[in-house]
Design a binder for these strands. Structure first.
Lengths: 214, 214
DNA sequence: ATTACTAATTCACGAGTAA
DNA sequence: TTTACTCGTGAATTAGTAA
């Protein structure tokens, strides 16, 4: 387990620079005795988790690596569970979606990484301002990266994708590196022509359930 | 502190669904005795961190909330520390930078959120392919959002900004929602005309140190 | 098989204090 | 002042075993 003192020292920036802290100060903040801190410090030193030079305390690379392990465990468990629920209205695309989605350079990756071949076209959903916060939250989750490529004359940028469900069917929210939209529009791809299948016209309401994580 | 057993159970998905695990199995994986697991389970139950129905174990909301607290502490320390070091060559902008940077709708936010009024113009840095990965990593860090606005006739999109240093001076990398550049070009703003101050011509080498987080 | 109780033991804590 | 030692006390752990 990650010792409590390591987490405390991380909070003090001791992984970036040496910090000057007395055992008494730490004891007060962590609500244990000065003697216990002294013992903990000796243990951390012996375990190679901290370096001490005089009063300067610095976390070692090993301590950072250990912390990252725990962090990633928590991140995986806590971030992956997040469900992002977007609802808004369908708007007309700019016509650009049709062109790039069908490129084999993308489609091969859609099949491999998203599990479906995308219908050539994007569905654009305009979300209310209140959901922009959530959109930004979704973007902090680890995306499925669809790599960019060049086909000689033109370059197609990378896309960040997140798996989603529309009417219970698989879909994905994609964030092109070079987007033509503002923060209030999200672009969707799916294996079927959802626009036709579900009779979506411009202005139709639409709900999208996106699951974070890959 | 977050009990080791809670982190273990998070890894087993016990916050999403009941999991069937015996005390012996857990004891083996965590390298403690079966008796200790039994006691820990009773303690977690009494603390309201798990629910048990027969052999099904499920973490409670309280346990998830506790875990999130620790997670955020680690996230703050570990994510914020990331330093992104870009180096490349200065390229000519498309002339579009000059126009939008000076808009008061942006400048007010630059002063408030970045701490400086930006020189009207962007410095464009072309980075080698090897740094594109890093660029994507930077984009997963929480940006400083510069909100978009409309000035009647035209709409100016939102920008994602990250504080940076160029020659030790404050600067920021900006990612317009609607970028004209590919993944290998990053746009910079700063309070001074760095191009003139440091005699940067097209093709000059340039290093940028970006700190993640806001 | 399983969980959890009791008892023996080991280990961690903090008071006192030396360096 | 500081850190860290010794040592008495109590808490946590495990072995044995009942349920």
């Amino acid at each position: 387990m990650l010792p409590e003192l390591v987490i405390y020292l991380l909070g003090k920036n001791a992984h970036r620079e040496g910090v000057r802290l007395t055992t008494k100060e730490m004891a007060t903040e962590l609500e244990v005795s000065q003697q216990t801190i002294s013992r903990w410090m000796i243990e951390l030193e012996q375990a190679g988790l901290i370096d001490r030079h005089g009063r300067e305390i610095k976390l070692t690379q090993k301590a950072v690596a250990e912390s990252e392990r725990v962090y990633l465990t928590l991140r995986l468990a806590l971030e992956a569970k997040r469900q992002f629920n977007f609802s808004g209205i369908v708007i007309e695309g700019l016509g650009t979606g049709k062109g790039f989605v069908k490129m084999p350079g993308y489609q091969k990756q859609f099949i491999k990484k998203l599990g479906f071949e995308a219908y050539p076209g994007t569905l654009n959903l305009k979300i209310p301002a209140g959901q922009i916060e959530q959109r930004l939250a979704l973007r902090t989750a680890k995306p499925i990266i669809i790599e960019g490529f060049g086909n000689g004359s033109r370059r197609f940028g990378s896309l960040a994708a997140y798996k989603a469900k529309i009417f219970g069917e698989p879909a994905a929210i994609i964030f092109p590196e070079m987007s033509h939209h503002g923060l209030d529009v999200i672009e969707l791809i799916s294996p079927d022509n959802l626009r036709r299948r579900y009779k979506l016209a411009m202005g139709s309401g639409l709900q999208v359930l996106a699951g974070g994580g890959s």
